Amino acid sequence: MGKFLIVLLFLSSFCFAQKTENDAVKESVEKLFIGMKNADTIMIRSVFADDAILQTITKSNEIKTERLGNFLSSFSKLSKNDADEKIKFEAIHMDGNLASVFTPYEFYYKGKFSHCGANSFQLVKQNNVWKIQYLIDTRRTNCNK
């Protein structure tokens, strides 16, 4: 009976330790914001697919596209903790190697509130790793805080 309990405890702890696909998707998205907060362009780059597309919907409802290289360059000029984007995972949808993630956010620059909005991510699973293929966001200052 004692050996059975030990085996049962081992198996149950193993099952709870398993990472789900939702967890893996969240980790990729969270890694982006950890990299941004740490001004770590290598970490930021690691979460994007090679041909990733980054876009912003401006206040005048235009769509502005930014090159990944320019996005990385902007963080290379910052110090650790200058950029802090606080997100909430509102929705994650998946089908095979495609994931869609929606995260409202608040962005702080050097400790002061800058703007808010929402991020919409499209991720693809490449070589068993979730990569951001497409990111579009909104940016506004009239936020309900």
Rank of each mutant, 00 (worst) to 15 (best):
K3S: 14
K3N: 15
F4H: 12
F4S: 10
F4P: 01
L5D: 10
L5M: 09
L5T: 00
L8M: 10
L9F: 11
F10P: 08
S13M: 05
S13C: 09
F14Y: 12
F14V: 07
C15A: 13
F16W: 09
A17E: 02
A17F: 02
Q18P: 03
K19V: 03
K19Q: 10
D23S: 06
V25D: 01
V25T: 01
E27N: 10
S28H: 04
E30C: 04
E30R: 09
E30A: 14
K31P: 05
F33N: 08
G35L: 05
G35D: 04
M36H: 01
A39Q: 06
D40I: 02
D40M: 05
D40S: 03
T41S: 14
I42S: 13
I44F: 01
S46G: 07
V47M: 01
D50C: 12
D50I: 00
D50Y: 04
D51T: 08
D51H: 11
A52E: 12
A52Y: 05
A52H: 05
I53E: 11
L54W: 02
T58W: 00
T58D: 03
K59F: 07
S60R: 02
S60I: 00
N61I: 03
N70G: 14
L72M: 10
L72G: 14
S73A: 13
S73G: 06
S74R: 15
S74T: 14
S76N: 14
S76E: 15
K77C: 09
L78G: 00
L78Y: 01
K80W: 01
D82Y: 00
D82K: 03
A83C: 11
D84C: 11
I87F: 03
K88G: 08
K88R: 03
E90W: 00
I92D: 01
H93D: 10
M94G: 04
M94Q: 15
D95L: 13
G96E: 06
G96L: 08
G96M: 09
N97D: 15
N97F: 07
L98W: 07
S100Q: 05
S100Y: 05
F102T: 02
T103W: 06
E106Q: 15
F107A: 15
Y108E: 09
Y108M: 12
K110Y: 02
G111S: 12
K112A: 14
F113P: 15
F113Y: 12
S114K: 00
H115L: 13
C116Y: 01
C116M: 05
G117V: 08
G117N: 06
G117P: 10
A118S: 11
A118D: 07
N119R: 07
S120Y: 14
F121H: 04
Q122N: 06
L123I: 06
V124N: 12
K125P: 11
Q126G: 04
Q126T: 09
N127I: 09
N128A: 14
N128R: 12
N128H: 13
V129N: 10
I132E: 02
Q133D: 07
Q133I: 08
L135E: 13
L135R: 04
L135D: 13
I136N: 04
I136W: 04
D137L: 15
R139S: 08
